[in-house]
Design a protein around this nucleic acid. Structure first.
Length: 314
DNA sequence: GGCCAGGCTAGCA
DNA sequence: TGCTAGCATGGC
């Protein structure tokens, strides 16, 4: 057993993260809300490892203890620390975000309600991309079902010390070996199956190198990936947000964001892409986080929570 | 039963 | 460059 401490820049709200996970179920995550614990399998240097994150220290002095099984080299341990810090956005200073949100009466309400909420990133960029392709144009519940089916079909499992099995997302190699027809019984559309398998094959063939992405600018990543069939701007924006943790993306075409803005600003109709880009100019360089909070306003409304719990859910 | 989903492509003007 | 039909199926 190996454990180490990670400092987290306050505010970090584990409770808010758990609320979000209620409307964004993730079969890879095992949550113990009472203990403030999160467990999942992830790959370190390609090797599946079960990691437990224990949150502590309260809202204003948050800390994070990471437990994992032994058997990691020093280099792998270092990579694991980096991965967990990145995944939890532990080093992000939200102060400037809240200053910015306080200047807008609608956003101020969200900043107060969701204080300490951060992204929980998907460290496997192949997984982040495939999950996003799956989510194109589908409701989140069904998208989640499809992702789970793909993991069971092509992924693997790893056991923790207590013998519980954890799903690990399939590798590009495993997906590249599939044919689209194999995913049809899982209720993937023909085209969605092709997009996902094509992307996996692009990685395996070396045409796409995801290891290069962290060193690219947002626009460079968009230019690098959107030529691939089935991958549009929205999809890469989501990859940049949920996979790479980039703070200033505005997925202006996103239906959830459009609904969130309508809800929070009390608009009669969903704003179009142009209006959103104009509105979002004042959110730079934190547009990803404002987007997260606007999405979360929708999530809170669906769950019947404040600040929008009592209102029309459309 | 109909409209909506955290879109994208291809075809057309 | 800009518009639109078609995709494909669950959720509500």
């Amino acid at each position: 057993m190996l454990s180490f401490e990670i400092p987290v820049k306050p505010p970090y709200s584990f409770a808010r993260l758990l609320s979000r996970l209620k409307t964004h179920p993730n079969e890879q995550l095992q949550v113990d809300a009472e203990a403030g614990r999160l467990r999942r399998a992830l790959r370190v240097d390609g090797k599946p490892v079960v990691v437990t994150l224990q949150f502590s220290g309260g809202t204003e002095t948050p800390g994070l203890t990471v437990f994992t099984d032994g058997g990691l080299t020093a280099g792998q341990q270092e990579e694991l620390v980096r991965t967990v810090r990145h995944m939890t956005c532990a080093d992000v200073d939200l102060g400037p975000l809240y200053e910015l949100m306080a200047a807008d009466q609608h956003l101020r309400l969200l900043a107060d309600s969701f204080r300490g909420l951060r992204f929980l990133l998907t460290p496997d960029l192949f997984q982040a991309m495939v999950e996003t392709i799956i989510a194109q144009q589908l409701n989140l519940a069904f998208a989640n079902t499809l992702t789970l089916r793909l993991m069971r079909f092509a992924g693997e499992t790893v056991e923790d010390r207590e013998g519980n099995a954890h799903l690990v997302f399939p590798t590009p190699e495993a997906v590249a070996r599939l044919e689209p027809e194999a995913l049809r019984p899982l209720q993937f559309s023909q085209r969605k199956a092709e997009y996902i398998i094509d992307f996996a094959r692009a990685i395996v063939s070396g045409r796409i190198d995801v290891k290069r992405l962290p060193d690219m600018s947002d626009e460079e990543v968009i230019g690098y990936l959107t030529p691939l069939r089935g991958i549009g701007r929205w999809t890469v924006e989501c990859l940049l947000m949920f996979g790479l943790g980039r703070p200033d993306l505005l997925p202006a075409a996103d239906i959830g964001l459009r609904n969130g803005i309508r809800l929070v600003y009390g608009l009669p109709d969903k704003p179009d892409e142009k209006e959103i880009r104009r509105l979002g100019e004042s959110w730079a360089p934190w547009r990803s986080y404002v987007t997260l909070y606007l999405w979360e306003a929708m999530g809170a409304a669906r769950r019947g929570e404040a600040p929008f719990g009592g209102r029309d859910k459309t």
